[in-house]
């Protein structure tokens, strides 16, 4: 039988180690958060003063002070639109199929396993695939379309997974209520499943686009140019049918590539440009992710089944 004193000493000792462990945990968490803050502050201190209106309306230049990101942000914008057009319909459709239609058989198992594995495939191999397939086999060239398709495929798993999660949160009672009214499967999906899961799907779309906007390696691999001093063809023309899709086949650069280009030069003035581009990129991704987090929490609160 242990004495009361032994017990108390034993507890003191364990309380001490418990405290040490909690402190280590807190330090690890803080270290990660401080790294994030340091990164933001360091980048901003260098970059923010460089962000003027001219910076957005100038093409890159040999002179650091005159250079801007006009072609880069227009390029990023065009690539994002193409990515969204490619990934959203495909991803949502795949998500709907896997949750609402797929039966438990080997085909669906392969698809499921494959989606999990896609998350672990390095992004640069998507670029290699795109270079071989889109650029050379399909002769799409080093164009906005190739870039959009590449990034679209890259973020496809994110959209599929979030779509599935959103759909899975809808209770079966809703489906049964719809079928009980005589609705077909597709009607149930269109009138109930898709509207109710739209918040969750939106979250996935935003997260995937924020991932795509920062991607650099696969676009370098498909041969995106780093020095572009012109804009893609305007999407509107003065002759019928007035809408012009020629821009899809134009060469392009994007903000992360522009940043990389400036960063790889030895002169510090160009590093300032890189920092400024970095600030803009970082703000965009942080705002998009913040928006997604907000949307997700609001969606969770609103939907009380």
């Amino acid at each position: 039988m242990e004495s009361q004193q032994d017990i108390l000493a034993n507890i003191k000792r364990r309380q001490f180690w418990d405290f040490v462990f909690a402190l280590t945990g807190l330090m690890s968490l803080l270290f990660a958060l401080i790294t994030l803050i340091t990164l933001i502050v360091d980048l901003s201190l260098t970059g923010v003063p460089r962000i003027t209106l001219d910076f957005f309306t100038s093409f890159p230049s040999r002179f650091a002070g005159k250079a801007g990101i006009l072609s880069a942000w227009v390029g990023s914008f065009c690539v994002m639109i193409t990515t969204a057009f490619c990934a959203i319909p495909l991803g949502v459709a795949a998500g709907v199929y896997l949750e609402e239609y797929s039966k438990k058989n080997w085909v669906s198992q392969i698809i499921e396993l494959n989606i999990i594995n896609l998350a672990g495939i390095p992004s640069i191999t998507y670029g290699l695939m795109a270079l071989g397939l889109f650029v050379y086999q399909l002769k799409l060239g080093q164009s906005i379309l190739t870039a959009g398709l590449t990034l679209g495929l890259l973020v496809l798993p994110i959209i599929i997974v979030t779509t599935r999660e959103a759909i899975r949160a809808i209770p079966n009672a809703i489906r049964e209520a719809s079928y009980a009214m005589g609705a077909s499967k597709w009607q149930t999906i269109r009138h109930h499943i898709l509207p109710y899961s739209s918040g969750g799907i939106m979250t996935g779309v935003i997260i995937s686009l924020s991932r795509a906007i920062g991607e650099t390696a696969p676009l370098i691999t498909i041969g995106a140019l780093t020095f572009i001093a012109f804009l893609p063809t305007a999407p509107i023309s003065d002759v019928p049918p007035f809408i012009n899709l020629k821009w899809l086949m134009d060469p392009f650069t994007v903000m992360p590539i522009q940043m990389f280009n400036w960063l790889s030069r030895p002169q510090a003035e160009f590093h300032v440009n890189a920092a400024a581009t970095g600030v803009i990129l970082l703000m965009m991704t942080l705002i998009m992710n913040g928006g997604a987090i907000y949307l997700r929490s609001r969606f969770r609160k609103k939907m009380k089944w």
Binding site: L33, L43, I207, S210, G214, P256, F260, H271, T285
Partner: peptide
Amino acid sequence: LELLAAVPTVVYGY
């Protein structure tokens, strides 16, 4: 914490 994973890799390069 997950924002750390959202920062573009080129920014981490910087």
